[in-house]
Design a protein around this nucleic acid. Sequence first.
DNA 1: CACCAGGCAAGTA
DNA 2: TACTTGCATGGT
Length: 220
Amino acid sequence: MTGKNLIEMYNLLLNYFGPQNWWPADTELEVMIGTILTQNTNWKNVEKAILNLKNRNLLSIDSLFSLPVSSLAQEIRPAGYYNVKAQRLKNLIEFIVEHYEGNLSLLFRIETRTLRKELLSINGIGPETADSILLYAAGRPVFVIDTYTHRILKRHGMSEDQTTYYELQSLFVNHLSEDVALFNEFHALIVQAGKNFCRRKPQCLRCPLEEWGIVPPAID
DNA sequence: CACCAGGCAAGTA
DNA sequence: TACTTGCATGGT
C-alpha cells in the first residue's frame, strides 16, 4: 500500500462517480453547522435540519447566539441527537463570539495547526469535525478521515482495526500532493463510494475498486 | 422487525 | 490506556 494505490484509487473513483462538488453549503458557517449535524447521521436528515434553520433565518452567528439552546434543538430535530447537537452548535457559536468577535474571517486568519487546536478545544468538535471545517470551510490542505475511509482501506488491505485516525491521515498526506482541491474531492469520493458499495453487509458489490483484483471481505 | 447513518464525550476498570 | 455507552431521527 503505497501512494500509487491511493492515486489509482482516486482516479478510479473520480472516473466512476465524477466530481462531487463538496461541501454542499452556501456559506462557511453553513459548512461548520453541517459538520456537527452530520456526526454519525445520514446527510438527508441534516438537510432537513438545515432547511429549518434557513426558513427561520437562523443561519447567522448573531441569530444563533441569541437563540435558546432548547429552541435550537427543536429546529434541528430531524438530524437526530438534537439535544447534544444543539449544545455543540451553541458551544461553537459562543466560541466564535467570545474569542473572535463573532467574526469568521478573524478565526480563519489563524495558521492551520493552531486553528485545528482551537477547534478541538470546543466541546463537541473532534478530529473529523475539526478537519472537515479546516478543509471545507477554511480551505486548508487537511485530509479528512471518516468511518468509510477506515472501512474501505481495511477491506483493501491498507489498514487494520487498530489503525488510528492520525495514522490513516498520514498515509494519505504522505502519498499525495498537498492540494486542497484533491483532498476535497478524494474524501467526498470515499464517502460516495462508502454510501453505495461499502455498507457493512452485504459487502461491496459492483464496487469500482474491484479492478484492483481484490475481493473485499465482509468485515467490521 | 432490524439495521444503518459523512462522531464525540463521558463513564468505567 | 482501552473499551463501553448514550445520544435519536428517518430511510431501507
